[in-house]
Amino acid sequence: MDIFWFLTFAVLLAGYFALEGFDIGLGVLLPVLGRSPAGRDRLVGAMAPFVLANEVWLVALAGVLFGAFPVLEGQALSRLYPLVVALLLAWIVRDAGLWFRRRADGAAWRLVWDGALCAGSAGLALTWGAILVAVARGLPDSPLDAPAVAGGVALLALLAWHGRTFAAWRLQDGPRGSGRALLLSACAAAAPAVLVIAAATGHMLGNAAPDPTLSVLSVMVVPVAPILVGAQVWVWRTFSRGALPTFF
């Protein structure tokens, strides 16, 4: 039972980086790839219908951490306190940029929220890199040091590449973006997190919730799992091709 929930956790983590990774990367590259307001609208339009379905993988990940590994949840989040706070603030700022950028007229308004979208995305990539480095080193007392910064920058570059691959694939321009290239960059985006969590397998299995709790979780969640997967597939079937929605 604990192995099942560990694998669920790992799948959610990999899925988060493979999917939300391109939103983050594209947000970072927004001023680079979209030099004009119209260009940025196009880039945001490419990722917009996916963002809500992608970012929620992290919410689910945190839920599984709390439900199936409650002791680790308390340990990890409190040991990583400043990084988790920074991650949340970056996430909030990124989301605000997306939701607000088209809600009022005026070039200045749009510029402010495009800036929020870009800065928030960069903050997400940097803090995630630092968090992965800290987890890989066994949650050191002061998680903010040179290796953490290096990890942040490395992840930023990786996700930016993933975002660029996604844009090339969805917008069908530039060097012909293929689905295979996107799959490759998705695997690459998920790889660091998967490696870190694989190294922590023993520690996680040793701190899983007791069987009665895990059984209840399984009984409730497993029957609904096909709907979760189906909803995600539906998003991809609906928004992979064709014109770009304009709400975000």
Partner: peptide, 9 residues
């Protein structure tokens, strides 16, 4: 943790 995990999933 169980009801919170169920809320998210």
């Amino acid at each position: 943790g169980a009801p919170l995990a169920m809320e998210t999933l």
